[in-house]
């Protein structure tokens, strides 16, 4: 093995799309092999198998539904069945606990909230959101890449930062049946309503606390429709008022549309962190000192209940 050369990157995700994004990360490191771990249904495993050189498949029929303690043991069994130097995991509420635990099992560091990954002097360098998303840190992960066998450094990549890989590797599928002692019981799974597909939207209109009633979202829906986009909300409107199942922001769904329109959004720091990569940011707010204006290309100081109908009127002309 030569320094700086990656023999194997292993990826783990429950979602086909994120799995393909992680394969892209492996490809960007010029890894000789990109292997994968998939826990779930065989049908989905057949789909992700196309994108990696070898897939370790663990059926949810054998191991049960998601629980981090048990799934980390399962991923660890795949790591031990191969020899990855890097394990890439989806940077989500389900992925991060699994990654953290696997990192304890393999005795290697884990980096989370990662948006970019590169090799530098034979080591791993990541860019991650820091200070709750206000800042971006460059972090060196471990000292050397190749010190032990089957001890990968673990990196959680946030979804949406890499393109989905199209490479057709069509690797073999190896079914693992790890002996995992089940201690956590999944009593119930309540699927959330599917969000509006914010990740792919070109235009997102976001309602903030300045919007007084849930019914007023209708006005924003009309604006979004004219702009060819969808409507999202900020954290308090979702988490506290339950107007929507998910929210836009660092702790919810980070987005990077071509056009972001914040209506009555003050610009709480974690929200800004989650929209920062938008191409153009427009903000409507009654408060001239609202922090969002510092981050906006176009700021409209005014009453949203006058401004939004006016925007709709102009766009309809």
């Amino acid at each position: 093995m030569r320094a700086g050369e990656i023999m194997e990157v292993m990826v783990y995700s429950e979602s086909v799309k994120t799995f393909r994004e992680l394969v892209s990360v492996g490809e960007s490191l010029n890894a000789d092999r990109v292997t994968g771990v998939f826990i779930g249904e065989e049908e989905n495993a057949e789909e992700v198998r196309k994108y990696c050189d070898k897939l370790f498949f663990i059926s949810s029929e054998d191991i049960g539904d998601y629980s981090p303690s048990e799934y980390s043991e399962a991923v660890y069994s795949a790591v031990k069945s191969s020899d990855p130097q890097i394990l890439l995991v989806e940077g989500t509420a389900k992925g991060v606990p699994v990654a953290s635990m696997v990192s304890v099992l393999v005795g290697e560091p884990c980096a989370t909230e990662v948006m970019e990954l590169s090799l530098s002097e034979g080591g791993l360098l990541v860019k991650r959101a820091d200070l709750g998303g206000v800042a971006i840190s460059e972090v060196k992960v471990g000292k050397k890449l190749f010190d032990k066998i089957a001890s990968p450094k673990v990196v959680c990549i946030k979804p949406g930062f890499y393109p989905a890989s199209d490479s057709e590797r069509k690797g073999e599928m190896v079914r693992l049946k790890p002996e995992v002692k089940r201690r956590t019981e999944v009593v119930e799974i309540k699927r959330k309503e599917r969000g509006e597909g914010f990740e792919d939207a070109d235009v997102i209109v976001v309602a903030g606390r300045g919007v007084k009633k849930k019914e007023d979202l209708g006005m924003l829906e009309e604006l979004a429709k004219l702009l060819g986009g969808v409507v999202g909300v900020t954290r308090p409107l979702s988490a506290d008022l339950h107007w929507a199942p998910t929210w836009i922001g660092m702790s919810g769904i980070p987005v990077k549309p071509k056009l972001y329109v914040g209506v009555g959004v003050s610009g709480q720091i974690q929200h800004i962190a989650g929209i920062r990569n938008s191409k153009v940011i427009v903000a409507v707010n009654i408060d001239p000192n609202a922090p969002i204006f510092e981050h906006a290309d176009y700021g409209i100081i005014g009453d949203l209940y006058q401004v939004v109908p006016k925007l709709i009127e102009i766009l309809k002309e």
């Binding site: 290697e108 560091p109 980096a111 360098l125 820091d130 200070l131 206000v134 800042a135 971006i136 840190s137 460059e138 972090v139 060196k140 992960v141 471990g142 000292k143 920062r276 990569n277 940011i281 009654i286 001239p288 204006f293 510092e294 981050h295 906006a296 290309d297 176009y298 700021g299 409209i300 100081i301 005014g302 009453d303 006058q306 401004v307």
Partner: peptide, 23 residues
Amino acid sequence: PELEVVSTRMPEVSRKNFMVDVS
């Protein structure tokens, strides 16, 4: 530490800050 922070910075995205006041 196995994670060594090399630098921490505020991300730089320059914005136009074109404002209209219709209050």
